[in-house]
Design a protein around this nucleic acid. Structure first.
Length: 264
DNA sequence: ACTAATGTTGTAGG
DNA sequence: GCCTACAACATTAG
């Protein structure tokens, strides 16, 4: 499930392969991957040169010599350089250096789109979570109603945090996922900011979390899943206090926390 | 064999 | 506008 650290790992592993390359051909094996009709997207992308590879939140943005290509991996999307063509390959790009890029996506939630102007959905995102300073983090949460975890997952407030890293950050900060944002002290929100920065930076360093079959553009797995303290550890002892990790549902999302370390 | 769960975003609704 | 519920989809665990 690619979140910020996984998408950043894909960006880093893919950038050198695509920066400066010309797209000679594009094949949409699944129209769904284009979001609508693949014809116009194919025509717009063919012959374009990729200037560089950027990331905002969970979006990969490819500035082109004309317009922008945006890729979102959603749940099961992968970008594989010279990857094999499989039954899950939805899009293939052929580059001018003889290499190819495969967009593989079993569940078909992922999208490859082209836009003439900078993509509106990316522009609408809140600031990227990685490297966000404490003052702005607090300002973005100020006046928000509701529980903290859904707010962390709201990409218009701050973007890049997904289910895994929300749970991990809340545990490190000692905050219950159902805590109302307005009732959490400034000191504890500052601690949350630090926990978010810490957990994202460590995850990027380890190449993200490969909890299902996530791999980077060169097929390498990430290792941050071995550092998870709550996510996917339901019933196992909290590494801080030994209390069994509990799993509840918050905003329709599986939520893992330690009932002792994270009080409301 | 059926059901629930998986996680992200857009959208529809209160 | 803000918040919540659900659909889109394919596979797997129970």
């Amino acid at each position: 499930m690619p979140e910020l650290p996984e998408v950043e790992t894909v960006r880093r592993s893919l950038a050198e392969h695509v920066a400066g390359r010309r797209i000679e051909a594009v094949y949409f094996f699944s129209p769904l991957a284009a979001g609508k009709k693949p014809g116009p997207v194919t025509r717009a992308l063919t012959g374009r040169r990729i200037l560089r590879l950027e990331r905002k939140g969970k979006y990969l943005v490819f500035p082109l010599d004309q317009g922008w290509m945006t890729v979102h991996l959603r749940m099961t999307g992968k970008l594989l350089i010279d990857g094999p063509k499989t039954k899950w390959t939805r899009v293939e790009f052929a580059f001018d250096d003889g290499h190819a890029l495969m967009f593989e996506d079993p569940r078909q939630f992922g999208r490859v789109v082209w836009s003439r102007e900078y993509p509106a959905d990316v522009a609408a995102l809140g600031p990227d979570a990685l490297g966000l300073d404490a003052a702005e983090f607090l300002a973005r949460l100020a006046g928000r109603r509701g529980a903290l975890k859904p707010l962390l997952l709201n990409q218009r407030i701050v973007c890049g945090i997904g289910n895994i890293y929300a749970d991990e950050a809340l545990h490190r900060a000692g905050i219950h996922p159902l805590s109302l944002a307005v009732k959490v002290s400034r000191a504890r929100l500052l601690r949350l900011h630090e926990a978010v920065q810490e957990v994202l930076a460590e995850a990027v360093e380890l190449g993200g979390s490969s909890i299902s079959d996530y791999v980077d553009a060169e097929g390498r797995r990430g290792w941050f899943q071995t550092k998870h303290r709550v996510y996917g550890r339901t019933g196992e002892p909290c590494l801080a206090c030994g209390t069994p990790i509990r799993r509840i549902t918050v905003g329709q999302r599986g939520t893992h926390f330690c009932p002792r370390c994270q009080h409301r």
